[in-house]
Design a protein around this nucleic acid. Sequence first.
DNA 1: AAGTTGACGACGA
DNA 2: CTCGTCGCCAACT
Length: 116
Amino acid sequence: MNLFTKIFSEVQLIPPGRVATYGQIAKNFREKYHQSVSPQLVGWALHQNPKPFRTPCHRVVNKNGKLAAGFAFGGPAAQAQLLLKEGVTFLNPTTVDLSKHLFSFPSSGNLGVYRG
DNA sequence: AAGTTGACGACGA
DNA sequence: CTCGTCGCCAACT
């Protein structure tokens, strides 16, 4: 189990139709694995993205629900398409509605990074 | 080993 | 809203 592998596992916990923020994943990761991680590490790990279509990285967005500008496979448009097919609604072409689709990891309660 | 990077987050201007 | 700054931490060079 590499560090990144663990992060990928966390990402894979996100169910269809839901999204999570990098900060959530980072916090949940510390609770679950008792390891220090930074939100950047999460994003950075996803950039490694060994298995693009196996890891649901399209369900991971930044604190404001904004899609990753440098999405590894197809850009934000492709990511948006994947999310739309899962029933996720958008506030903007590149911003998801976190108030409706934000996912909270179990065992760490509500780690709302979203300030709304 | 040392400095830079990054799909981030929070706060201030 | 955008832009700058600081914090964050493993990987990259």
